[in-house]
């Protein structure tokens, strides 16, 4: 009886930990989405400009002049990087979902065990 109770407590703790990780992954994933969208918008804007237009990049409080081609390349690279991160986090979220489910299942089984034990005594 005590052993089952202990197991349940352990399972609850690990479930909570996984849930926390999951929440964190989700919010990072959302941030990535926002970044990706912003970069896509910038890419579109840059594509609308003619090549002789002046473009500046804010580095800290200073605006640094930049070639538009360079800016386009940078944004494209950034989008690639974010896309990779998005994939990485999607996998992570999937894994954490599975982990949560297995914790939940184990917990349910343990609780049933406990119930049975209480009925017997």
């Amino acid at each position: 009886m005590d052993e089952v109770q202990k197991k349940i407590e352990n399972e609850v703790i690990s479930l909570k930990g996984t849930q926390k990780e999951y929440q964190k992954a989700i919010s990072t994933r959302q941030q990535l989405d926002a970044q990706l969208n912003e970069n896509k918008v910038v890419k579109e804007e840059l594509n609308l400009l003619s090549d002789d237009r002046k473009v500046y990049k804010a580095i800290g409080p200073a605006l640094i002049k930049m070639e538009i081609i360079e800016a386009k390349q940078n944004v494209a690279k950034r989008i690639d990087y974010i896309n990779n991160e998005v994939k990485r986090f999607d996998d992570m979220i999937l894994n954490l979902e599975k982990k949560q489910d297995s914790h939940r299942e184990a917990l349910q089984k343990l609780q049933q065990e406990k119930m049975k034990a209480t009925i017997k005594t």
Binding site: V41, V42, E45, L46, L49, K54, Y56, K57, A58, V75
Partner: peptide
């Protein structure tokens, strides 16, 4: 005018373009 087009990039545009933006 110079317009903030996002992620720290600023582009110089003429008035008509800016209005359009």
């Amino acid at each position: 005018v110079i317009i903030d087009i996002g992620t720290g990039y600023y582009a110089e545009q003429d008035i008509a373009e800016a209005k359009n933006y």
